[in-house]
Each structure stands twice: as structure tokens, then as C-alpha cells.
Amino acid sequence: MDVALLIGIFPQVLLDGIILGFMYALIALGYTMVYGVLEFINFAHSEIFIVGAFVGVEVMLGLKSAGLLDGLPWPVVLVLVLVAGMAGSGLLAVTVERVAYRPLRNAPRLIPLISAIGISFFLQDMIRLFESLWRNAFNLVYPTLDALNLRFELTETLDVSVKSLVVIGGALGMLWALHMIVNRTKVGTAIRAVAEDQAAASLMGIDVNRIISLTFLIGGAMGGAAGVLFGVQYGLINPYSGFIPGLKAFTAAVLGGIGNIPGAMVGGLVLGLLEAFAASYLSLLTGGAFGAEYKDILAFSILILILIFRPKGLLGEVVRERA
């Protein structure tokens, strides 16, 4: 075994893990906010996330065909794409809640979950249908911006590209904004009140339905931002590529303690790092016997073990379980 190699790749793996972790954290926020308010797993969030990526790529391709992609300064392009992705995903999340979840709010708990699974599948094929008719292709590639692909060599074995910094910076900015909204504004207070006790909140003059819509809007917008950043970072997207990251992000939310916003960030980072290390080191350490794909098994095993043995997660918000 080449110890020098193992140590050599360490900083790069760490960086990859942090990027992946922030991505998971952003997606996990959507799961955790909805769970906090409704105690309901929004299974369709993985598709809401990937819709953000598709809105983003459509805006970029639109700008490209208008000849503006290289004309505008890249931060402007990036902000435009992010805003579009967030708006698309946020509005979609609100619509999904209105159509498929609200009529079922008082039904037994499994009913809305099954409906959410249905929405998830439906959205996957809707994206496919739309893109097939519109572009005659549903595997889309993000146009590259030269400025984003610029790489800085920090050390011999570690280099970092502008887009990685953008992903980390964007994720941190979103998380900070969310923190401010939830903890420092009146709306945030209302969200927390509804999460605490819907009936009491409505007696205090809070419009519960509006707050729930708003929760979906904010969670969806975070997912949309994550979608755009995902596309910028990894390039290739298809209608089904949201599912696995969505499941991993849900794992992150559970790992940190579902319903708990800082928990989603911690869970995302922990899971991202674990996965990055598993992907790079497993096959090196076992001489190729276990490939990088075992990172998925690692993630799902964490999900299973946490749900069974510590359902309140690492940061331990107490979760009531409605049967």
C-alpha cells in the first residue's frame, strides 16, 4: 500500500467532501423544514431539487442562444441562473403542496407519504416529457463558463476551481439567509410557531395555510439553488439524477436530527465527508475488492442505523412519532 499516495490525496478528498456536504445540506433543508412543520417526509423534494437544475440549464442555454452568455459578466449570469432556479423550484414546491398534500393533511400518516412518492415519479417523467418535446433530449449538459473553470493550485496535490468556491460560498450564503429568516424575522417566528403547535398558532392569528405554503416555498427555493449549484459543479443532469442525491440529503437531515435546521447542515457535511472518503479510500485500502459504489451502501446503512437506534439524530431534537 502506498502510504504517500493515501496522504497525498487527503486534502483533495477533504475539499470534495466539503463541497458534496454543502450540496446535501442545502437539499436537506427542504426536507427538514417541511418535516419540522408538518411531520411529513416530502418525498418529491428530490425532484423539486432537480427541477431547479433544469430551470437553471434552460436559462443558461437561453442566454447562450441569445449570445449573452459570454457577453455578461459571469457573476451576473450566475445570479440570474440561481434566482431562476430558486423561483422555479419554490413555486413548484408550493404547487405540489397545494395540489397533492393539502387535501390529505388530516388523513392517516401514510396517505400523504404515498401521494408524495407518486408526485416524485410523476415529476421525473414530466421533466423528461417536457425536455423531450422541447429539446429532443433529456440528458442535458450545463454550458461551461471559462471563468468558473479556472483552477488555483494551492499545493502540489490540491487545486481548487472557481466553481467549487462558488458552490461553497453560495451554500454558506443560503444557509446564513435561511438562518436569519427563521430566527430574526416575524415570518420566521410564525414558522416556528406553526411547527410547535398548529392549533395554538392559528389562535394567535397566524394563517397556518399561508405559513405552510411559505415553508414549502423557502425549502423548495433552497432545493432549487442546490440544483443549480449541482449542475454547475457536476455538469451533466437528467430527470432521474435527483433521486439518489435526494435520498442522501434526507439521510443527512435524519443524521443531523430531522426538523432541526443546524442539524441538516451538520448532517450534510458529515455525510458528504464520509462519502468522499469512502469513494476515494475504500478501493485503495481493500486493494480494489470494494469499489467506490459502496459509498451508497455506506450512506443507506447510516440512514437505516440512525433511524433504528437514534431517530432523533446527532443533534438530538426530540421527535414525536405519530403512529
Partner: peptide, 24 residues
């Protein structure tokens, strides 16, 4: 019609519609 539009491939949509409509 675009060549990528193949109705045979939309089984997820069928499952999804069934699940949502039945639940509601």
C-alpha cells in the same frame, strides 16, 4: 414530433398518477 418522445417509456408517470389520484 421529436424522436426522443417515446410514450412507451413513461411508466413512472403512470405509477405516479395512479398513486396521487387514488390517495386523493
Amino acid at each position: 414530433l421529436p424522436t426522443q418522445f417515446e410514450p412507451a417509456k413513461y411508466e413512472r408517470m403512470v405509477f405516479g398518477i395512479i398513486l396521487v389520484l387514488m390517495m386523493i
